[in-house]
Amino acid sequence: MPKDSTENTEHRPAGGKGGTDRPSPRVLNERSLRGLAHPLRIQLLNALRRNGPATASQLGKRLGESSGATSYHLRQLAEFGFVEDAPEHGKGRERWWRAVEGGITYDGRLVNQRDPEIRGAADVLMHEVAAEHYRELTGWIADRAQWTEEWAEVGDMSDITLRLTAGRLAELTRKLHELVDSFESPALAGEEGAEEVRVHLHALPFRPVPPARD
């Protein structure tokens, strides 16, 4: 069965290996999935992964939340091993947090668990990832004029319909991840003019709605 995955910075199937020395992704189990499956916790982890270490107050301002709420959910993330203290950034009583290295992935079979709590946690995680993709996509459209013409022309929004078996879809997903991995290397990242690029891969089974009968 194909795996669903989320790193909120990058997305890979469980067990996937990139072309760099990045840590292997952490495979969520039932307990850690429940610990992560809260919209604010996912957003906090996202923010730390994308922007680096921060305090609860800084994250609260960035996300429009109280520092009390962000502090509580950061402690919960730490309990489940998603974030940790970043003492080298602290000054006085300030507590800084950073994301634990490595991606996050989970087995798609968690979605089909009989336990409604586990299925609900998986749904929360998937919906928040989809919401983040939407925010990034609409943000790109809104800010497109701020990029040079060269960059504005190379952003891609495509959709293609294929007819595949489940096995062929799994093969397509694997090859797409391998292709993306082949573009990732420290040498390429340091090229002059390089920018951070977000790649969203969506490959979903779909049944067209039949035409209504008269």
Score class of each variant (00 low, 15 high):
147 W>R: 01
149 E>C: 03
172 L>A: 09
149 E>W: 00
111 V>F: 12
168 R>E: 10
152 A>W: 00
178 E>V: 10
119 R>N: 06
134 Y>Q: 11
183 F>H: 09
145 A>T: 10
148 T>Y: 05
124 V>D: 01
187 A>S: 11
180 V>L: 10
117 E>S: 04
149 E>Q: 01
166 A>R: 10
178 E>C: 04
122 A>E: 04
150 E>N: 00
171 E>F: 11
152 A>T: 03
121 A>E: 01
184 E>G: 04
150 E>D: 08
143 D>E: 15
170 A>F: 05
160 I>Y: 12
159 D>S: 12
128 E>H: 10
135 R>S: 07
184 E>Y: 11
173 T>I: 10
127 H>A: 05
167 G>H: 13
113 Q>Y: 03
139 G>L: 14
175 K>H: 13
148 T>F: 02
124 V>M: 05
119 R>Y: 02
131 A>N: 15
158 S>C: 06
168 R>L: 13
111 V>Y: 00
171 E>M: 15
162 L>R: 09
131 A>S: 13
188 L>P: 02
131 A>T: 10
166 A>V: 15
147 W>C: 02
159 D>F: 12
137 L>K: 06
178 E>F: 07
120 G>V: 00
143 D>C: 07
163 R>Q: 15
180 V>F: 02
140 W>R: 12
158 S>F: 08
138 T>L: 09
120 G>S: 12
148 T>D: 06
162 L>Y: 14
126 M>S: 02
168 R>Q: 15
186 P>G: 02
182 S>D: 08
172 L>S: 11
130 A>C: 11
116 P>T: 10
119 R>L: 01
123 D>Y: 06
143 D>N: 13
129 V>L: 14
141 I>M: 14
154 V>K: 02
173 T>K: 06
150 E>G: 00
142 A>G: 13
